[in-house]
């Protein structure tokens, strides 16, 4: 904030200094005053445009989704919509949860590797390599999950079914193509990995050097140093990174659409079935005629998804901002 305040003060100082002797200069500079006014108005307008856009997103989604919960001839049909939306919401949460459970430990490990284990000269390029994971488009991940990962996981699913079918998660007939919600979760895990890694890496690097050196000087091993100095400092950062990853996993469309062969909600992770909100929209929207009830229904679940991700992201940002205040990180 200081960078924006200081230039404010300096021009006024200049103008008050020159005012007594050269008031004619000020009056002749009317194009400059005009330019200043236009430019600042444009800048303000651009900022307001963003707020208006976001308001419009919420407004349009709400306005277009009323058809899903209210019809002329039937009146309010909230129950019907909830019945339609509930399996999709649960499916979305399951897929995101699988992704987080798989990705979080690996991401924290990779971030630790980059910040504390890798040779310092290499750590930056290793960070780039992990960022490459984020550069691959989601549709390519979807294609990879559908053609390579899914078939590769089929024997694993068969094995899980054979030995662990007493657990409800692994009951049900295993998929022969591997296009299940578990595969989708694995693909999502790969996609959220770079997000969680980069947030964790940032926060691990910010750990006060003095804390680390104090721990090492007291005879702690490297792991004990990490556990005693790095993790307590980085806890909020890890949580917010995981939340950001969750937001991404909830909203990810193409990977799930391509990988999953959608179906009804089932508890089994290894058989075909389940669906997520984004996949449902991507599959249904191009076929839905404009202005139809089906389209309203799809926009309504889009709104549900929007609200869920909004809450998740805002919580993540809130944790980050709360953490910033007392950590003195910047």
């Amino acid at each position: 904030m200081t960078s924006s305040d200081e230039p404010q003060s300096s021009p006024t100082a200049v103008s008050t200094a020159t005012r007594p002797q050269a008031s004619s200069l000020r009056t002749s500079d009317s194009p400059g005053v005009f330019g200043d006014r236009v430019f600042s108005t444009l800048a303000l307008l651009a900022g307001v445009t963003i707020l208006v856009t976001l308001a419009f997103v919420a407004l349009f989604l709400t306005a277009n989704s009323t058809g899903a919960i209210h019809r002329e001839e039937e009146g309010w049909i909230v129950g019907q919509f909830v019945e339609y939306a509930y399996p999709l919401v649960v499916g979305t949460l399951i897929a995101a949860l699988i992704a987080l459970v798989l990705a979080t430990p690996v991401a924290v490990g990779v971030a630790l590797y980059i910040s504390h284990f890798a040779p310092p000269r290499l750590s930056k390029s290793i960070g780039y390599v992990i960022d490459l994971l984020a550069a691959i488009p989601s549709v390519v991940y979807g294609a990879w999950g559908m053609s390579f990962l899914g078939p590769a996981l089929v024997p694993v699913y068969a094995w899980l079914h054979q030995y662990l079918s007493f657990i409800p998660l692994f009951s049900g007939s295993p998929s022969q193509t591997g296009r299940t919600i578990l595969t989708a979760g694995v693909v999502l895990a790969v996609m959220v990995l770079p997000i969680i890694t980069s947030v964790c890496r940032e926060i691990f690097i910010q750990t006060p050097k003095l804390h680390e050196e104090a721990a090492l000087a007291l005879g702690a091993t490297r792991w004990e140093m990490i556990r005693m100095a790095v993790f307590p400092f980085a806890r909020a950062g890890i949580i917010s990174g995981v939340m950001l990853g969750l937001g991404r996993a909830l909203g990810e469309t193409m990977a799930v659409t391509l990988v999953l062969s959608p179906g009804l909600l089932t508890a089994s992770l290894i058989s075909a079935g389940n669906s997520t909100i984004p996949a449902e929209i991507a599959l249904g929207f191009p076929e839905a005629p404009p202005g139809s009830e089906r389209q309203a229904q799809l926009i309504a679940i889009g709104l549900v998804l929007f609200i869920i991700t909004l809450i998740v992201n805002m919580t993540a940002r809130w944790i980050v901002s709360r953490h910033k205040e007392f950590s003195g990180a910047n």
Binding site: L298, L303, T309, V312, N313, R317
Partner: peptide, 12 residues
Amino acid sequence: VMTGIPSIVAGL
């Protein structure tokens, strides 16, 4: 907040 908008919602 906008950075977190799911891409499909932006499309809608």
